[in-house]
Design a protein around this nucleic acid. Structure first.
Lengths: 130, 130
DNA sequence: CCTTGACCTTCCAGCGACTGGAAGCCCTAT
DNA sequence: ATAGGGCTTCCAGTCGCTGGAAGGTCAAGG
């Protein structure tokens, strides 16, 4: 398989796949013309990576997850720990964003949004007082 | 005021303040020795920027907000529009993260987290099937 | 056989918003 | 005189790609 095919099947852009090779996540073979040749195992890894990335794992997490996946003697506890730590970070970020949303939506509601210059959004930013 | 003082008062690291000068958000004066000299108005702007950044506005949004703030003839509608667009982005991001959280917390729950290698988290990543 | 166009290759630069570190000047206190 | 802290600039790195340039390769059509 060439990069275009595998990109389509894995749902990842060719650029991303080349990048993953660069950083050593995959190591496809090479044809005599220099083209990358992907095995089924490469495709499988790419799909794995795509799903892990879609869950928000960092590239380094993905590297670890792949290594765990390929290690028959892994302990599921290690995987779970990684996932839990990641989940905690996501929950932190959600909390942050929800706090922003709260403040912002209050501000938006309180702003007339007309031709006049008076604007509680700017006043709040200027003074930190609501 | 020197950069250290203003950093403390504005709650921003000196590095960030220098960066804000680099990109033209503020233009402090200079002492004969080359040190930056901050006026009250600079401090005020920095505090404004700190609050806007804390609400998640991009630097370019902040630039626009500052300009609106300093324009007596602004229409509050312009500010509101910017804030609303930003709010929408935040809500999108929250939705994304919540979807991740949902999947991840299911996976974490389903994983024994013991010494055995069997792990639904890895199976899910490998196959995309739960 | 030649051309066209789609694919592939590498390499370099840029995104956003800083942050770390090096090298060196300045100022104050002892 | 020296020690320390603070200030300066500049360069590089973060993260995960993404865009673009310059050029090689391949299959189909004329």
């Amino acid at each position: 398989m060439n990069i275009g095919d595998v990109a389509q099947k894995a749902g990842l852009p060719p650029k991303t796949i080349r990048y993953y090779e660069d950083i050593g996540l995959i190591t496809p073979l090479r044809d005599t013309n220099g083209y990358r040749v992907f095995r089924e195992s490469d495709l499988h890894k790419l799909a794995f990576l795509g799903r892990a990335r879609a869950l928000g794992f960092t590239i380094e997490d993905c590297r670890t997850l792949l290594a765990l996946y390929e290690d028959d003697t892994r302990a599921s506890a290690d995987v779970k720990e990684l996932a839990q730590a990641h989940l905690a970070k996501i929950e932190d970020k959600i909390a942050q964003l929800e706090s922003m949303r709260g403040t912002l939506s209050d501000l938006v509601k309180s702003c007339a949004g007309d031709n006049r210059p008076d604007c509680p959004i700017l006043s709040d930013l200027a003074t930190g007082q609501h």
